[in-house]
Design a protein around this nucleic acid. Structure first.
Lengths: 132, 132
DNA sequence: CTATATTTGTACGTATGTATC
DNA sequence: CGATACATACGTACAAATATA
């Protein structure tokens, strides 16, 4: 499988569309693991960075989740028909912002959890008022 | 200005935090143009791709807008009013909530980063459970 | 209108770090 | 410990859009 050089869209968008279609087609059913970045890179004749860019779009669509050391998996509630990939530019922009924000919040939560492990326990204030 | 190698955050997140702080500090006021990718690359000693990654976070925060052939500009609510208000009231409301949330998360990220600098590094437990 | 420089966007190939198996 | 897989980074190159001479 190769990308179409006549397509006006850049390769990473074409690859994203191809993967979306494959998911909708059921080639990668919900919960299944998508081929690794290296495999996709070889299969479609693009660099691994291009695969990463394409997967970022799918992640923004909420169709996949990436787990370091494991792989990339199709989300269980991935919609059929590619409804999420369409919509107004504003919708896409908001979705991407939400995705980045969600990832940032996740990493923040982990960092805070680690900090709490090494933090001395908060000193109990002497019977302070609990109102807000 | 150079990045801190002791910071546990990857360079692109450090750079994003530095740029966020510079914007909040008023070094790049609303509507102003941020130094070009090449300049930031030289100034902070990172690759341009790293600058791009950092700017993607700021874009996710809603702090900047990029215009190909022109540059990257600090987003100004007043400046953006003309083009951004072309959505349904629901879209505008969601965008505003997203903006506030992004700002809150950004401030949280900076506070966590400061805490991590003062805190002792978490010890790696070599006999811990590896399952989840 | 054309040519050139600037800036962002995208892509490539390679390398390293880290998590998981 | 070794193999696999994603995350990140580097440096280079070209395309697209814009501004300017």
């Amino acid at each position: 499988m190769t990308l179409n050089p006549d397509d006006s869209r850049p390769p990473y968008q074409q690859l994203a569309a191809a993967l979306r279609e494959a998911i909708d087609r059921g080639e990668y059913p919900p919960g299944a693991q998508i081929p690794s970045g290296s495999e996709l890179s070889t299969k479609y004749g693009v660099a691994r960075a291009t695969v990463t860019s394409a997967l970022r779009l799918l992640r923004a669509d909420g169709m996949i989740v990436s787990r370091q050391g494991q792989g990339v998996f199709v989300k269980s509630d991935a919609l059929e028909g590619g409804t999420k990939s369409k919509g107004s530019p504003e919708f896409i922009a908001i979705t991407e912002r939400l995705d980045e924000l969600a990832r940032l919040v996740s990493s923040l939560a982990e960092r805070v959890a680690e900090l709490e492990l090494v933090m001395p326990a908060p000193v109990q204030q002497d019977a302070g008022p609990t109102n807000e």
